[in-house]
Simulated scan of single mutants.
Amino acid sequence: MIDYDEIASNYSKHRDIHPKVLEGLISSENIKKGSNVLEVGCGTGNYITAICQTVGASSYGIDPSEEMLKKARARTGEVLFKKEKAENLDFEDCFDLIFSVDVIHHLDSPSQYFEKAYESLNKDGKICTVTDSEWIIENREPLSKYFPETIEADLERYPKIDELKTCMAEVGFTEIQGNVVEQTKQITDLQAYREKTFSVLHLITDEAYEEGITRMKKDLMKGPIRRISRYFLLWGTKK
């Protein structure tokens, strides 16, 4: 069990915005000044804060970790943050867009979340689930390369894209479609990996983790390590 209150400080330091994900969210016609936007599992508030500041949307964030929310509230006073689980959304016809980033695999019941999200959206409102497909998990750089044990760990906990599509259709979402975004960066510092900022590093053995870090250190001495960050954006509409 990962304690997100315990790792909130590391998340705040090392987890940043994927520019292509933000671009994809902002390009939705459901985000504009005055729109009501909710981020589910907002963590330290990176994305919803950026949307609020960039677009001027009325912005809200929920997360079950109080320590994560403390970091989010320290970031901005323009977003309303609340401690709540995704499956317990209690709104009706409130939002133009509900989105989550790297959250769906943490939920006890994705289907219950989709039901609550559907009820919480306005007519023609959209939902976007930013997650990892099986292919993305298997081809991560550098995680899958240096910590191959993370592949099995994440394949077990991430819902398959087809399963998510089925759940969405069953509760009434239409126009269900998805696309992959990608960004390449160079890693010159291993601090985020040393502090296990990526939750799956808490799910492999200490031995596997230490072996991976050792390999990364050796390769980093030769030059920067390539990081390819990919996400699958899964969209649906309430008609």
Results as ranks from 00 to 15, higher is better:
Tyr118His: 12
Ile127Ala: 00
Leu155Arg: 13
Tyr118Thr: 05
Trp135Glu: 15
Ala192Ser: 14
Lys145Met: 10
Asn122Cys: 06
Lys85Ser: 12
Glu115Phe: 05
Ala153Asn: 04
Cys94Glu: 15
Glu134Val: 05
Ile161Gly: 01
Lys123Ile: 15
Val181Gly: 04
Leu203Ser: 11
Leu97Asp: 04
Asp93Ser: 12
Thr205Glu: 12
Val200Gln: 09
Thr184Lys: 13
Arg194Val: 07
Lys160Gly: 14
Thr129Asp: 15
Gln186Phe: 03
Asn88Thr: 04
Val171Gln: 05
Tyr146Gln: 12
Glu163Cys: 06
Glu207Ile: 13
Lys116Asp: 04
Met168Ser: 02
Thr197Asn: 14
Glu170Asp: 15
Ile137Asp: 03
Thr131His: 12
Thr129Val: 15
Glu92Cys: 08
Asp96Arg: 00
Thr174Leu: 11
Ala86Tyr: 07
Phe95Arg: 01
Asn88Glu: 14
Leu155Ser: 09
Ala153Ile: 08
Tyr146Asn: 07
Asn122Leu: 14
Leu190Lys: 02
Ile187Met: 11
Leu155Asn: 07
Ile187His: 07
Thr188Gln: 10
Asp154Ala: 07
Arg194Asp: 13
Asp206Met: 01
Asn88Asp: 14
Asp90Ala: 13
Leu190His: 03
Ser111Arg: 06
Asp102Phe: 06
Asn179Leu: 14
Ile137Ser: 06
Pro148Lys: 12
Gln186Thr: 11
Glu138Pro: 04
Lys196Tyr: 02
Glu149Cys: 01
Glu170Arg: 00
Thr174Ala: 13
Leu203Met: 10
Ser133Val: 09
Phe114Lys: 00
Thr188Ile: 09
Thr174Cys: 07
Asp154Gln: 15
Ser144Glu: 11
Phe114Ile: 05
Glu134His: 06
His105Lys: 01
Glu84Ala: 14
Arg157Tyr: 06
Gln191Cys: 00
Ala117His: 09
Lys196Glu: 14
Val181Met: 10
Val180Lys: 04
Arg194Ser: 03
Gln183Arg: 09
Pro159Cys: 13
Leu164Asn: 06
Asp124Tyr: 09
Asp93Leu: 02
Pro142Asn: 04
Thr184Gln: 14
Ala86Glu: 09
Glu115Pro: 00
Gly212Phe: 03
Ile187Asp: 13
Ser133Gly: 07
Thr184Leu: 05
Tyr146Trp: 12
Pro159Met: 08
Asp108Pro: 00
Val130Phe: 07
Glu195Asn: 11
His106Cys: 03
Leu164Gln: 06
Asn139His: 14
Gln177Met: 07
Gln186Asn: 15
Phe173Arg: 08
Gln112Met: 11
Gly172Asn: 12
Ile187Thr: 03
Lys82Met: 12
Ser144Met: 13
Leu107Arg: 02
Tyr146Lys: 08
Pro142Phe: 12
Thr174Asp: 11
Glu210Trp: 00
His106Phe: 09
Ile176Thr: 04
Pro148Ser: 08
Gln177Lys: 05
Leu201Pro: 02
His105Trp: 08
Glu210Thr: 00
Ile176His: 09
Ser133His: 10
Phe114Ser: 01
Glu175Leu: 14
Glu149Asn: 11
Ala117Arg: 02
Arg140Ala: 11
Glu87Tyr: 01
Pro148Leu: 15
Leu203Gln: 10
Tyr113Lys: 00
Tyr158Glu: 10
Lys116His: 00
Asn139Cys: 07
Val200Gly: 01
Pro110Val: 03
Glu163Val: 13
Glu149Gln: 11
Pro159Glu: 12
Val180Asn: 06
Glu182Arg: 12
Glu152Cys: 05
Ile104Phe: 00
Ala117Asn: 02
Phe99Trp: 03
Thr129His: 01
Trp135Asp: 15
Ile136Lys: 03
